[in-house]
Design a protein around this nucleic acid. Structure first.
Length: 595
DNA sequence: CTCTCATCA
């Protein structure tokens, strides 16, 4: 998250900019005398901003373009909130937003960017804090430490009415039912496109098949479009372009269409009422992807997608009783994730007693205990839970702790060059684009060419001039690869800062793999004759993810390291490297403690 | 035989 701010000062005391919610709604804590209902505080371009007092926090609401972000800070500035050394701060979720907002406000008040108005990026944010990310929770927790307030989320925006229709009975087969409802809606005529919400890619493809099967040649035509994050940019854009004349667009989507993007022209929403989320189990230290009932907030948001341009209809494929039983909101990410790196960062900020830290929602105690254990066995904190020297260094590195440790260990193995590349490559996700259908098999072959050795894909991308067409030809994501290049150059700066040599192992893969053991010794597994692996920690049966080169091959030594594990239908391990088992003793637990 | 969705340094 990023921050734009007005010098000098902060908002406060007695008037702290506390929180901004989803889609641009600002939340500001203000002096108690503002304790009035819906007090219009400002008018900009014919649109009003309102203040709503709630639990001692003033929430500023208003529709898109009303000036919450650009006008309100100026208003507060004029009202003297930035007097006597205080700053008015405004957070943005992306750096482009932070820089452009700061530039615009600077221009509006007629000053040079960097004087009264400036911006900063990283870790000190406040205005647009999007719904319940880990950083939102941390930020709010830190704010709470300063001011004992409890904000509550409010959302207001321009909407057309959406009629909600519930199913009379529970729907056992939601994919089939979604296709049916879409088809019936389509046949009823009338204008407007259809948006279907399903939990995952599999469901989406099945639903599309159902619809294709239902299409008689003579029927009014539909344009069927899938939408999920795994698609390439071009494929995703199809969902946003207007359908061919005389056709109705049917977008079948994951949660990607729920909040982050808006599709114009949608008049009908079909909601299965389910969502796929990641859940972390601290006792096994494994994350799972599970389908769970969506929250009330979530299904409301989905329904709202039908009312962006005109009156709409939302068909819910669940009963009213089911709706009533839904949780108000999805459990926040902070309660569903591994906290090892987060706790390391908090320690570096001087926040030591995590059991007493005022979380907005407390993560499970076991997750915290487990994170401490991991930090201890990694040599990042002492037995008294204080940072070790290496711990404080690694806390500064924007990396998973095991990868960061590997960067430090690369000194011993003279392979800094290669480790940098590996660190960058494993830090990105969705490197490979997996198209469905016939081109899929070809793409599969193409990308296996590039995963044979660590860093091969990366080096080839550089060699071919970081070209978009090269990526397309090899089923690689240009976005992801470009990000890897930028991450690598960032990490290189950290290597310099910590005076770590950037040497190449000159093709000595053995040394490189030994270095990998120093970071990843926890993630080792032994090959079994049926092609699965047995994890050393936890003795669990694990399946190789089909994108791995070792998917069908047995490693000669019978032992591997894996980058990560995730439970879907079964435990899947990804990004594998063959190792010799004795290295686990030589370069594992004891070895890394010496740092 | 596979992937909910976002971020950042």
């Amino acid at each position: 998250m990023s921050l734009s701010f007005w010098k000098p000062g902060t908002v406060g005391p007695g008037s702290t900019l506390d929180r901004v919610t989803e889609n641009d709604s600002a939340v500001i804590s203000a002096p108690p005398q503002d304790n009035r209902e819906r007090l219009p505080i400002f008018k900009h371009r014919q649109k009003l901003l309102y203040c709503v007092e709630n639990h001692g926090v003033t929430i500023v609401v208003g529709q898109t373009g009303c000036g919450k972000t650009t006008q309100l800070p100026q208003f507060l500035y004029q009202a003297g909130w930035a007097d006597s050394g205080h700053v008015i701060a405004c957070t943005q979720p992306r750096r482009v937003a932070a820089t452009s907002v700061a530039a615009r406000v600077a221009a509006e008040i007629g000053t040079t960017l960097g004087e009264e108005v400036g911006y900063t990026i990283r870790f000190e944010d406040l205005d647009e804090v999007h719904e319940r990310s880990v950083h939102t929770d941390l930020l709010l927790g830190i704010l709470k430490k300063i001011r004992r307030k409890r904000p509550e989320l409010r959302l207001i925006g321009r909407m057309y009415p959406v009629q909600i229709a519930y199913s009379d009975e529970p729907v056992p087969n939601f994919v089939e039912k979604a296709a049916q409802v879409a088809w019936n809606t389509h046949l009823q005529g009338g204008s407007g496109d259809i948006l279907i919400f399903l939990p995952g890619r599999d469901d989406i493809e099945m639903c599309l098949e159902e619809l294709v099967g239902a299409l008689p040649a003579s029927a009014p035509r539909m344009e069927l479009v899938p939408l999920y994050a795994g698609l390439s940019t071009d494929e995703q854009l199809r969902a946003f372009s207007a359908p061919e004349k005389g056709k109705r667009k049917v977008v079948v989507s994951t949660n990607i269409a729920e909040a982050s993007v808006t599709i114009e022209g949608i008049r009908y929403v079909i909601d299965c009422g389910l969502v796929k989320i990641r859940v972390y189990n601290p006792s096994t230290m494994i994350s799972s992807l599970v389908v769970v009932p969506a929250s009330k907030a979530s299904v409301a948001q989905r329904a709202g997608r039908a009312g962006r341009t005109s009156n709409g209809v939302c068909y819910r494929l669940f009963t009213k009783d089911t709706f009533d039983s839904l949780p108000a909101s999805t459990p926040p990410e902070i309660s569903r994730t591994d906290l090892t790196s987060i706790i390391l960062q908090l320690k570096a900020l001087g926040i030591d007693d995590l059991m007493k830290f005022e979380w907005i929602s407390s993560p499970p105690a076991e997750t915290i205990v487990k994170a401490y254990d991991t930090l201890r066995t990694s040599g990042l904190i002492t037995d008294h839970n204080t940072l070790t020297p290496i711990g404080s260094k690694i806390a500064e590195c924007p990396l998973e702790y095991n990868i960061a440790k590997m960067l430090f260990a690369s000194k011993d193995f003279s392979c800094g060059e290669e480790i940098l590349t590996i660190a960058a490559m494993v830090s990105i996700q969705d490197v490979f684009i997996i198209p469905g259908g016939a081109p899929g098999a070809l793409a599969e072959l193409e990308r296996r060419k590039f995963t044979a050795e660590e860093g091969v894909t990366y080096n080839a991308f550089i060699r071919y001039g970081q070209s978009l067409s090269w990526c397309k030809a090899h089923a690689l994501s240009f976005r992801a690869m470009s990000r890897a290049v930028s991450i690598r150059s960032q990490l290189k700066k950290y290597m310099h800062r910590f005076e770590l040599p950037i040497k190449s192992c000159e093709g000595d893969a053995k040394r490189l793999r030994q270095c990998l053991v120093s970071g990843y010794w926890r993630h080792s597994a032994k090959w079994q004759p049926d092609g699965t692996y047995l994890s050393v920690h936890g003795n669990k049966i694990m399946h190789v993810h089909p994108t791995s080169v070792l998917f069908t091959r047995k490693p000669k030594s019978g032992w591997v390291l894996f980058h990560d594990v995730e439970e879907t239908k079964q435990l899947q391990i990804r990004i594998l490297t063959e190792i010799e088992p004795e290295w686990l003793l030589d370069y594992g637990y004891q070895y890394t403690l010496k740092y």
